[in-house]
Design a protein around this nucleic acid. Structure first.
Lengths: 131, 131
DNA sequence: CTATATGCAAAATTTTTGCATCGTT
DNA sequence: AACGATGCAAAAATTTTGCATATAG
């Protein structure tokens, strides 16, 4: 995800570039934490004087629709947003709840050279939480 | 999951066998649909004169704690309950939302003979929804 | 200036909790 | 009779929606 590119796409779709949308984009850019909407709202309100949850949700829904950010549901049920739009997979840690990226290449290797036909979610312990 | 065995385990843990618990067990036994709490509540109330959501949730939480049923979060965020307690994996269909079992052996084969260290969730199209 | 986005509040959904009552053993 | 379970209602938590107001272009 590239902020400038996404703003370009927004304009092409007749959407305006608002400070709120810019703040969401700025926070998401390069973020590898798979933040929840609540976390994003928190970051945006720290940045701007005020902002509302609804706006953050609207913005995220828009970005997902445009394919500018990915969306995975955490094991805890929260939606998590992912600026990494390249095909990849996830490891969800039972212990700490973190969501980690698993490169597509790693899964392709596991599957004897065939790329997976969808997202693969591994649920278990992340490297940090392994005994 | 075997109803009689689970009732035995309940007794061993000092838990009573109530009609509500029996109804939940009866509905879950052999059910391959990964039903949600709402679906289970619906089935139980059709069976018993009345029952409350809280009781169904209590019962399900108890069964999960005792390891008598498994628990996976659907892609839609709902919890789904699974009487199949043997290690296995799941395929979540993007199209129809169904959750299907994927035998542990299938994944072990994919992983060159090594069993997976946790649940693996494949997200994509189920056989029925494939083009 | 006009279309669009924002913000607030309230609704919808799923799950949890507190508490009085009821039922199992 | 005692302890645990039930049921109701209300609370939490997350996401969605309706509508009046404000703002970007």
């Amino acid at each position: 995800m590239d902020v400038d590119a996404v703003e370009q796409v927004l304009k092409e779709h007749g959407c305006t570039i608002t400070p709120q949308r810019r703040a969401v984009l700025r926070f998401l850019d390069g973020n590898l934490d798979h933040p929840s909407a609540a976390r994003i709202y928190e970051a945006v309100t720290a940045d701007l004087p005020v902002s509302s949850r609804a706006t953050v949700y609207n913005t995220l829904a828009l970005l997902v629709q445009l394919g500018a950010v990915g969306l995975v549901r955490g094991t805890d049920g929260e939606m998590r947003y992912d600026p990494n739009t390249a095909p990849h997979h996830h490891l969800s840690c039972d212990q700490c709840g973190r969501l980690e990226d698993v490169p597509a290449t790693a899964v392709t290797l596991l599957l004897r050279g065939q790329p997976a036909a969808g997202e693969v979610r591994f649920t278990g312990r992340c490297p940090t939480c392994l005994p």
